[in-house]
C-alpha cells in the first residue's frame, strides 16, 4: 500500500544518499518465526532531539513494522514522549525544540524541507495522555478532522463508523449532540481515538493513552487496540510494563543516560525487538533490570 505523498511527488523522491538503510530488527535469531517481510512504516535513523540546545534524546535508530503494536517503554524522563512526538512532527510545536536525523515514513523523510508537517499529521494520528476532547458535541468532535480536511461524503456515516471502530457508538448514539465533556474519562479517551480514526490515518500514535484511566477503562482501550491493529499501525508509549507485555508485538526500551560531570540527562534506545524476548531474554543488562522491576 502506498499512501499519498505529503508534497509534490517529484520533490519527495529520496536521493540515493538518503535511502533508508536496512536495519530491520533481527527477530529470527531467537528462533521466533520471522513475520511477513513487510516494509517498515517508519525507518528512524540517528534521531536526536534538542530542547534549547540540551540534548533530550540521542541517536535513536529503529524500524516500526506495519499492522502491529509497538510499545515504547522506559523510566520517566527517558524521552518516550519526545520520541513519539517526532513521528508526527508534534515537536515542531514546542518552542526551542530541534530535531536531527531522519524519520522515513514509507521511505519518505518527513523532516525533508519540502514536507508540510500538517500533511504528516493527517496521515499519522495521535492520542494524548490526558483525554482532550474539544468543548464541542460528540458528533462535532469526530467530524472535526474530516471537516477541516474537506471531507465530501456522508459525514453521518463516517462519524458512526469511527465511533463504532472506537467501541463507543452504543454508549453515545443517543447523545451525539451533547457535549463531549460530559462523557467519562474512558469514554473521552475512546472519543479521542474515534476522532483520530475519522481522518483515516495510517498510523496511530498513543502517548500513555490509559495512564489517566481506571483499570476497567484501561482494559477497554487495550481491547480496542487489538481491534485497531488489524487496520492501523500503532505505536504506544507506556510506563506500564504489564501493558506493554499484554498488548504489543514489539517493544523498544529507552533509558536515561547521565553525564556525571555536567549531570545533564538524555534518553537513548537501549534495545528493541519482539516483546516476548525483551521481557524474557533481554540482551542488555539495563533492560533486564528494568523489566524485572529492579529500578525505574
Amino acid at each position: 500500500m502506498t499512501p499519498p505523498p505529503f508534497a509534490a511527488p517529484a520533490s519527495t523522491a529520496l536521493p540515493n544518499s538518503a535511502q533508508a538503510p536496512d536495519l530491520t530488527p533481527q527477530v529470527g535469531e531467537y528462533g521466533v518465526p520471522q513475520p511477513s517481510a513487510a516494509e517498515p512504516v517508519f525507518t528512524i535513523r540517528d534521531l536526536s532531539v534538542y530542547y534549547g540546545g540540551n540534548v533530550a534524546l540521542k541517536e535513536v535508530s529503529l524500524d516500526i513494522m506495519p499492522r502491529e503494536i509497538t510499545a515504547i517503554i522506559g523510566p520517566s524522563g527517558c524521552g518516550k514522549s519526545t520520541f513519539i512526538r517526532c513521528l508526527n512532527r508534534m515537536n515542531d510545536l514546542i518552542p526551542g525544540a530541534t530535531v536531527t536525523g531522519d524519520v522515513f515514513y514509507h521511505g519518505q523523510n518527513i523532516y525533508a524541507p519540502e514536507v508540510d508537517p500538517v500533511a504528516v499529521r493527517r496521515r499519522i494520528g495521535m492520542v494524548f495522555q490526558r483525554p482532550n476532547p474539544f468543548p464541542k458535541s460528540v458528533y462535532d468532535n469526530v467530524a472535526f478532522g474530516p471537516r477541516i480536511n474537506g471531507f465530501k461524503g456522508d459525514l453521518d456515516e463516517l462519524v458512526e463508523n469511527s465511533l463504532r471502530a472506537a467501541a463507543l457508538w452504543d454508549e453515545v448514539k443517543d447523545k451525539l449532540k451533547k457535549s463531549a465533556l460530559n462523557l467519562s474519562g474512558g469514554q473521552q479517551q475512546r472519543l479521542c481515538i474515534a476522532r483520530a480514526i475519522a481522518v483515516e490515518p495510517d498510523v496511530i500514535l498513543m502517548d500513555e493513552p490509559a495512564s489517566a484511566l481506571d483499570p476497567v477503562a484501561t482494559v477497554r482501550i487495550e481491547d480496542l487496540m487489538q481491534e485497531l491493529k488489524k487496520q492501523y499501525s500503532i505505536i504506544i508509549v507506556t510506563h506500564n510494563m504489564q501493558q506493554a507485555a499484554r498488548v504489543s508485538e514489539r517493544t523498544a526500551f529507552l533509558y536515561t543516560e547521565v553525564d556525571e560531570e555536567t549531570s545533564s540527562r538524555w534518553g537513548i534506545l537501549v534495545e528493541h525487538g519482539e516483546t516476548g524476548l525483551i521481557f524474557t531474554r533481554p540482551k542488555d543488562k539495563r533492560t533486564e533490570d528494568y523489566v524485572s522491576g529492579r529500578f525505574g
Partner: peptide, 15 residues
C-alpha cells in the same frame, strides 16, 4: 485555552 486542545487539533492535521 488549554494547549492540549490546540495539540489535539494539530494532531488531526489542522493548520
Amino acid at each position: 485555552v488549554p494547549l492540549e486542545l490546540q495539540h489535539g487539533s494539530f494532531a488531526l492535521g489542522a493548520s
